[in-house]
Design a protein around this nucleic acid. Sequence first.
DNA 1: CAGTGTCAAGGTGGA
DNA 2: TCCACCTTGACACTG
Length: 301
Amino acid sequence: MKIGYPCINRSIGCSPGRTFRLSSYSDERLEETVRENLRCLAEILRFNQRECILFFRIGSGLVPFASHPVCTANWQETFAEPFREIGRFIREHGMRISMHPDQFVVINAKDPGVVEKSVAELRYHAAVLDAMRLDGTAKIQIHVGGVYGDKKASMERFASVYSRLDESILRRLVVENDDSRYTLADCLRIHEETGIPVLFDVFHHQVNPSGAGVAEAVELSGATWRAEDGIPMIDYSTPMPGGRKGRHAESLDNADFERFLAETAPADMDIMLEIKDKEKSALAAVGIARRDGRFLMPRER
DNA sequence: CAGTGTCAAGGTGGA
DNA sequence: TCCACCTTGACACTG
């Protein structure tokens, strides 16, 4: 079991997702930004390593506009060495990496242009992980996409586009249940159709359930991961107390997290905490998981 | 220099 | 058919 947090570290004083306006794009501006972002990413990973936080989601903004036609810079070549260096650090310390392209990636879209742009974005995500020389256990998680008034047909479109993706994407892509459209049951059906592993999101499952209890859901989704996919990943969070539906909590709900671990024992999984205070919650969760016994310190592995 | 409107990209649902 | 909302951090403009 590894525990992690997504994209940014609030206590470190830099962001690996610095960007700029499309209107001020230049290859120079891009290089300058990517250099800073990679430097910051390396710093975050060192922080995580010191704190035994061995799971991290790399934000999609690492290389701004990478899949946009405006981006003509060969960032893979320019930054080959820093990417490889970061990858080496990740492997050396037994870390797990994920990425999560945002809402604009819709591979089951009806508009072929949207599908094309989505695939380009997936290609970018895979290129980042390839540049780091990470294997197929580094995952790219997406949602199923739109419903367009016909869920069955839309799920079939997902399967059809999925089957035609490049190998560098295919080996990494996993599908996650979302908070309003596609439930865990829908994702499991797509898995049966395509073989794609299912990343279970605990919070979305509460908001948009499909029958299974949490322990069963962890088991069912976990069974969709093959050996080459690595330990199943889970997204965990709780609702913001008093917040509107769908908002993520500001900080870890220790009691709920302990309950979650107890409920799902002895399943092994890597847990991504989608909680606003990021590394702070991850530190607390590592403490709780150590007491639970499934989480091993690096020297105990 | 602090405050704030806006930002590549999509889908949904209400008006 | 149009627009606000989803959710979020950070840019970049305003006063």
